[in-house]
Amino acid sequence: AEPVEVRTPTPAAKVLASPAVRQRAKDLSIDLAEVRPAEDGRLRHADLDAFLSYNASGGFQPAGLKGKDEQVRVIGLRRRIAENMAASKRNIPHFAYVEEFDVTALEETRAQLNAGRGERPKLTMLPFLISAICKLLPKYPMLNAHYDDEAGVVTRYGSVHLGIAAQTPGGLMVPVIRDAQSRNLWQLAAEITRLAQAARDGSAKSSELSGSTITVTSLGPMGGVATTPVINRPEVAIIGPNRIVERPMFVKDASGVERIEKRKIMNISMSCDHRVVDGWDAASFAQDLKKLIEAPALILAG
Rank of each mutant, 00 (worst) to 15 (best):
Gly58Ser: 13
Val230Gln: 09
Ala286Ile: 04
Thr109Val: 04
Pro141Arg: 08
Ala180Trp: 06
Glu235Cys: 10
Gly58Gln: 08
Ala166Ile: 06
Ala132Cys: 12
Gly58Met: 04
Pro3Asn: 13
Pro11Cys: 09
Tyr157Pro: 07
Pro169Ser: 03
Ala297Trp: 12
Ala301His: 10
Leu292Tyr: 10
Ser88Lys: 01
Lys68Gln: 15
Leu195Ser: 08
Gly118Tyr: 13
Ala111Cys: 05
Ile293Asn: 07
Met249Lys: 07
Ile293Asp: 03
Gly202Pro: 11
Leu162Glu: 02
Ala196Leu: 01
Val154His: 03
Gly58Val: 01
Met266Cys: 00
Val216Arg: 12
Arg44Phe: 01
Ala196Arg: 03
Asn144Ile: 07
Ile268Asn: 01
Asp49Ala: 13
Arg233Leu: 10
Arg80Asn: 11
Arg178Cys: 01
Val35Ile: 07
Ile177Gln: 07
Ser57Glu: 15
Glu70Gly: 14
Gly59Ile: 08
Leu28Glu: 05
Pro19Phe: 07
Tyr97Ser: 08
Asn91Ile: 08
Lys122Leu: 10
Arg120Tyr: 01
Lys66Asp: 07
Ile214Met: 15
Met85Lys: 04
Leu136Ile: 09
Glu5Pro: 07
Ser159Leu: 04
Gly58Glu: 06
Arg36Leu: 02
Ile268Tyr: 07
Pro93Ala: 04
Pro234Glu: 12
Val72Ile: 15
Lys262Asp: 00
Pro175Ile: 05
Thr217Trp: 09
Leu137Trp: 07
Trp280Asp: 08
Arg156Cys: 12
Gly202Glu: 08
Gly152Ser: 11
His94Met: 09
Leu28Pro: 02
Ala132Tyr: 06
Asp69Gly: 12
Val216Cys: 13
Ala145Glu: 12
Ile133Cys: 15
Arg80Phe: 06
Asp27Lys: 11
Trp186Phe: 04
Asp253Arg: 06
Pro138Asp: 06
Ile81Val: 14
Ile164Cys: 13
Lys26Met: 04
Leu298Glu: 15
Leu300Gln: 09
Asp47Leu: 10
Trp186Asp: 05
Asn91Phe: 02
Met85Asp: 02
Lys66Phe: 05
Ser207His: 11
Ile260Ser: 02
Cys134His: 03
His161Gln: 09
Lys14Arg: 15
Leu219Lys: 11
Ala38Arg: 11
